[in-house]
Design a protein around this nucleic acid. Structure first.
Lengths: 252, 252
DNA sequence: GACAATTAAAACATCTGATGTTTTAATCCT
DNA sequence: AGGATTAAAACATCAGATGTTTTAATTGTC
């Protein structure tokens, strides 16, 4: 499943393999998949214990995580209900990951791309001024990996790392916290471009190269422009394969 | 404290008053305040139980929340350590709230403003095309409240709601999930503008009006431009009072 | 003395049962 | 009918027991 790939990209460290995490993911995916109307009560502790065959401590911890991510709301003596989608921490890496494979994917992908369009060109701008040598090396390395990738998987992975490195180079932790948006959009895009008969590497690589060079030479304006162009190109390519995308995305 | 004001703006519903939440906040604030170097182990369960005088279930739930927000990493049999700042969910409302009052505030405020500059003009653009009548009414109402505000508190609250309404009007939940950035930046700004002898309402209101009108008339480009101008103005005003701000913020 | 295997301690993970508190709603009384 | 009482449901907290994993100290052998 694609969600696993997302975690490959993202969660190299930091995850706990415990039961609470599993139950949390189970419930979280159901919620994100839209199985509960907003405001709907979920089963109470004891029922969840039976359903997942775990103790109530585990269930309680799982619920606490989901509350922390804005998906659930617990009221003492009353019950636990699903919060409205507008209250979810949609930028949370797990919540984003749980969206993989959920319909309607196109609509969500459009929104992800919209955010990328807002953020990444500016990130490139800042990276051109602020990235450390090490961060630039990481960008460069990722570009290299894209060139030498032997499979679509490898290519996408390198692509993701390239964009992540640019974000990190901008020297703004708040941007770094949006990595998940990029990964999520990228993974959703794969499903579309997988069907693309044309190898888009030829098209994509030179644009990445321009971004890299602009950042290396600390040319902020050019870095922003190159990133914007790359994203516009990506969007155009995608929307050719998936016309529903076109309607909403801001044209340049 | 300002953090409480943040919750006034944000957490009208959704919070649990339990012990776990309290302990979590206590530890969370310490971490955000930088009391632990990255990778540092925090006290183990039993010590935390003693320190906060709660049972281990409570501590475990508190820790789970902090893990969910990316601040802690638990390894079985080993211990619980603070993750590096780059791994924190900095866009999480609680994590943002915990930043209130933490030094260095200027640096963080600059980053918040950078993100606002990336996001809000675009949000205004989209809102001009997608906002429902109800959402436009909310923007309008907030503008009215700004006009009639009788205190700085009221004014800031209305201001925050104005920007939130624009964000919501863009019809993109991922943007809505960034509300916290706006509130956080706004609250940090108060401390600066509170010392401003000049009443900035006169300067701020007409700019908000232009945004409102552009959205009402569905003029996307003008809405984006008006928002950009407003933000540039705000930034300029702030950086006059706090010169350190200027260095990093993208000029327009 | 060095290296490998064993062992012990520390720390988190899970289960269980008991008790308290809050909310909701049904019941009862006037 | 309306207000007060009460009972049930559901979450909150505590305490103790047991299991599992990791780390490091110990031990034993060559």
């Amino acid at each position: 499943m694609n969600e696993l790939l997302y975690y490959d990209l993202k969660n190299v460290s930091g995850l706990t393999p415990g039961l609470a995490t599993q139950v949390c993911r189970e419930i979280g995916r159901r919620i994100v998949a839209g199985l509960f109307p907003e405001g709907q009560f979920i089963d109470d502790e004891s029922k969840l214990c039976k359903r997942y065959n775990v103790s109530k401590s585990v269930v309680r911890e799982a619920v606490k995580i989901l509350v922390a991510k804005g998906l659930l709301e617990v009221r003492r003596g009353n019950g636990t209900r699903v919060r409205q989608r507008a209250s979810w921490n949609l930028l949370d890496d797990d919540v984003l990951a749980w969206h993989q494979g959920v319909e309607p994917e196109t609509d969500f992908l459009r929104k992800l791309i919209d955010v990328r369009l807002m953020v990444e060109p500016n990130a490139a701008f800042w990276a051109a001024g602020a990235a450390t040598n090490e961060q630039i090396k990481e960008i460069s390395k990722s570009h290299n990996d894209m060139e030498n990738a032997k499979s679509i998987q490898e290519f996408v992975l390198a692509d993701a790392k390239f964009h992540r490195a640019v974000l990190r180079g901008a020297n703004n932790e708040l941007l770094t916290a949006m990595e998940g948006v990029i990964f999520s959009a990228l993974l959703s895009s794969i499903k579309i471009t997988n069907n693309d008969p044309i190898d888009n590497r030829e098209r994509s690589l030179p644009l990445h190269y321009k971004i890299l060079k602009a950042i290396e030479t600390q040319n902020k304006v050019r870095a922003e422009f190159a990133m914007r162009k790359h994203m516009a190109d990506t969007y155009e390519r995608l929307s050719k394969l998936l016309p529903e995308l076109k309607s909403g995305v801001k044209k340049m």
